[in-house]
């Protein structure tokens, strides 16, 4: 059982991460990602009794986030990055970065569901062990897939 104060701390620590993860799923649409991130935290509060180990809370949060995102897609249908007017990162002086981010969203959008989950965790800097735990795969399998995915993302971004 999480106390209200602990939940506040979890919210402050994980909200930006969960929000970015939702942004990845919603192809950069901020209002949808905001609603989805909120939905994730509502589920976290509702299902807090299922947290077995407080130390594994980060992988628990990521799993809940992925499953909430997966189920939400049917409500929001398929969202395409081409429909986005502005990307969330908009430094006025850094047009190149903004374009790069748009390109990154397009790449993520084209990935298969399991690759997308892994890519979003990788971009958040989650380590191999945690990625394996979140996705329910072995560490060896995760390591191989991460290696391939990193190369794929780098290659695709190089074609900018």
């Amino acid at each position: 059982m999480i106390t209200e104060e602990e939940f506040n701390n979890i919210y402050n620590e994980y909200h930006p991460k969960v929000y970015r993860l939702c942004l990845g799923y919603m192809s950069g649409n901020q209002p949808l990602a905001d609603d989805l991130a909120q939905e994730v935290f509502i589920k976290l509060w509702e299902k807090q009794n299922s947290i077995k180990d407080q130390k594994a809370i980060s992988s628990w949060i990521y799993r809940v986030s992925f499953n909430t995102c997966m189920m939400s897609i049917r409500n929001n249908k398929k969202y395409s990055s081409d429909e986005i007017e502005d990307t969330p990162y908009q430094p006025e002086q850094d047009q190149e970065a903004s374009e790069s981010l748009k390109q990154l969203y397009r790449i993520i959008e084209k990935l298969k569901a399991d690759e997308k989950n892994m890519a979003l965790l990788l971009l958040e800097g989650v380590n191999t062990e945690n990625i394996a735990e979140v996705l329910g795969i072995t560490k060896i399998n995760a390591r191989v897939k991460i290696h391939r995915l990193r190369s794929k993302l780098k290659d695709e971004m190089e074609h900018l």
Binding site: N12, R20, Q38, F41, P88, Y89, L101, L104, L122, G125
Partner: peptide
């Protein structure tokens, strides 16, 4: 690529943690 991703600023939240609870 990672820093490009993590530099995205969350938009100002409409709902706070109390609303969520």
């Amino acid at each position: 690529i990672q820093s490009l991703w993590s530099n995205q600023e969350p938009q100002k939240q409409n709902k706070n943690v109390d609303y969520i609870k």
